[in-house]
């Protein structure tokens, strides 16, 4: 009779699953009555933690600032830029941002990216060394491969791309040399592409900058120098004009016509050529 007991257990499990199928998700936490929009104002009013602190307090202040900056809103972008510009000489804080970027590079890409962004915007001399070290870290050879992509390589390369942004924004001869090295020699396309864009933008998209870049860029990647940038402040007409010019200069960038799925049993099309197929 053991099989009958098993059967009963199975039926109970199946019934539980059928019940679970219909159950809505739930939480033991009390429901929040206020709508999210009602809390926006209060959140935007949270003051930024000070960066003007003693060396001993720098690490703590940097962590608190990153917590705040991550949660800060799109509307506070310019305010944060001003604060970071004023903090450019706070070397201990800049070093703490670098430490945080390194500490979280494996465990939380978004936090590490945030730390590199903040450090880059500071234009601190501490950033030069930090970004250089980041940029030259070897890409991991092993790791999870998903949809043709080594995700650990991608993770580091995306952070290195942000480090390149920081180097280019420092706009010194030495940091420009690093950026141009990355344009031609970095093993990741992600970093090379960002370096091209960062060099151009920081040199006001000048003709000279394009000429310089073309000396370094890999032959197959020359099209990246002409890439269309979606500048957030730019109106549709301006962007559309740029896009039209790009496609005119690069007809190879126009995709071929999409294809329908071929129906099974459809007659094969005869070749257009007069010659027989090559054996």
């Amino acid at each position: 009779m053991n099989w009958q007991c098993t059967l009963v257990a199975c039926l109970i499990t199946a019934a539980c699953f059928a019940q679970q199928e219909k159950e809505p998700p739930r939480s033991s936490e009390p429901a929040i009555a206020a709508r999210p929009s009602e809390q926006d104002k209060a959140r935007a009013a949270v003051k930024a933690p000070a960066l003007n602190v003693s060396e001993q307090e720098a690490a703590k202040a940097a962590v608190a600032f990153l917590d705040w900056a991550g949660a800060s809103t799109a509307g506070q972008r310019e305010e944060i830029r001003r604060m970071l510009e004023q903090a450019s000489q706070y070397k201990a804080v800049a070093a703490a941002f670098c430490d945080e970027a390194n500490r979280t590079a494996e465990s939380d890409f978004t936090r590490s990216l945030l730390a590199l962004s903040v450090l880059g915007e500071m234009r601190s001399p501490v950033g030069t060394n930090c970004f250089q070290k980041f940029l030259h870290r070897p890409l991991p050879e092993k790791g999870i491969v998903a949809n043709g992509e080594n995700v650990e390589q991608t993770k580091l390369a995306m952070l290195q791309a942000k480090a390149v942004d920081g180097l280019a924004y420092l706009r010194t001869a030495a940091t420009d040399r690093e950026v141009l090295w990355a344009v031609g020699k970095h093993p990741s396309r992600i970093v090379r592409a960002e370096a091209i864009e960062a060099y151009l933008w920081n040199h006001k998209d000048s003709k000279e900058a394009r000429t310089t870049l073309l000396k370094y860029v890999q032959p197959k990647e020359r099209v990246f120098v002409d890439r269309v940038r979606r500048d957030p402040a730019e109106e549709a007409t301006v962007f559309n004009r740029k896009l039209t010019a790009f496609l005119k200069a690069h007809p190879e960038a126009v995709a071929p016509a999409p294809k329908r799925i071929e129906q099974k049993g459809e007659a094969a099309k005869p070749p257009k050529e007069d010659e027989p197929p090559v054996r």
Binding site: S117, G120, E194
Partner: peptide
């Protein structure tokens, strides 16, 4: 930058760090 045969696609935003 990496997934398009006729790429790259548009670059979103500018490369300013923040």
């Amino acid at each position: 930058s990496t997934r398009f045969i006729n790429g790259p696609g548009y670059f979103c935003g500018d490369p300013r760090p923040w």
